[in-house]
C-alpha cells in the first residue's frame, strides 16, 4: 500500500481580515514513498450557512514522515491556488422619498440601510503544517492535520459604514 485517496472534514480559521471559523470538506490523495509523503488536496471551506467566507483551493504538498510505523507524524508544506468570497455587511445613509398624507405631498427622510458587500479574490498561496497518520500502509487510514496558510493576496477590510455615494 503506497497510495491513498479519501475525504476529510475540517475548516479554516482566517486571522485576517476577520477571525472566523469556516468549516467544510476536503478531498485528497497521498503517495507514500516511506520517508516522503506527496499530497494533492482540494479544500472547500466556508460551507456553513453562517459563514462570511466561501473558499475553495487546490494544492500540492510534500511532507516528511517520521518513522515507518503504523502511527506516523509528518511535517511539511506546499503551494495552493485558491479562490475566496468574503462577505461584509455595509451600512449607509440613504435618502428615501415617501408620500405624506397629512401634507398631501412627498417628503424625504434619511434612513440607515444595510447591504452585503462581497469581495472575491483568487491567487496562489503557501502553507506549512503537519499531522499524524494512523494505520499507515493499510487499506483504511486516518489523518489529523493542522496547517498555517498565507495567500499572496488581500481581502477588503470590513468597512462598517460608507457614504451613499461610495456604496
Amino acid at each position: 500500500v503506497n497510495s491513498y485517496f479519501g475525504i476529510g472534514i475540517g475548516g479554516m480559521v482566517p486571522l485576517a481580515p476577520e477571525i472566523e471559523m469556516a468549516p467544510g470538506l476536503n478531498l485528497f490523495g497521498i503517495y507514500d514513498t516511506q520517508s516522503i509523503l506527496f499530497g494533492i488536496d482540494c479544500n472547500l471551506w466556508g460551507m456553513s450557512s453562517d459563514s462570511r467566507y466561501s473558499y475553495a483551493d487546490f494544492g500540492i504538498s510534500a511532507y516528511y514522515a517520521f518513522g515507518r510505523k503504523f502511527i506516523a507524524p509528518y511535517i511539511g508544506g506546499g503551494l495552493s491556488f485558491s479562490a475566496v468570497d468574503y462577505e461584509t455587511e455595509v451600512s449607509y445613509v440613504a435618502e428615501r422619498e415617501y408620500y405624506d398624507y397629512d401634507i398631501q405631498g412627498y417628503r424625504t427622510s434619511e434612513e440607515t440601510e444595510y447591504n452585503t458587500y462581497v469581495d472575491d479574490k483568487s491567487g496562489i498561496g503557501a502553507f506549512i503544517g503537519g499531522g499524524v497518520m494512523l494505520n499507515r500502509a493499510s487499506s483504511i487510514i486516518l489523518l489529523a492535520e493542522v496547517k498555517y496558510f498565507v495567500s499572496f493576496f488581500k481581502l477588503a477590510e470590513p468597512k462598517g459604514t460608507v457614504t451613499y455615494e461610495q456604496w
Partner: peptide, 16 residues
C-alpha cells in the same frame, strides 16, 4: 494584511 490563517482537517483514506 495578506489573507492568512489556520486550517485543520480530519481525513479518512482508502489505501491501495
Amino acid at each position: 494584511k495578506l489573507f492568512q490563517g489556520f486550517m485543520f482537517n480530519l481525513k479518512l483514506g482508502y489505501g491501495f
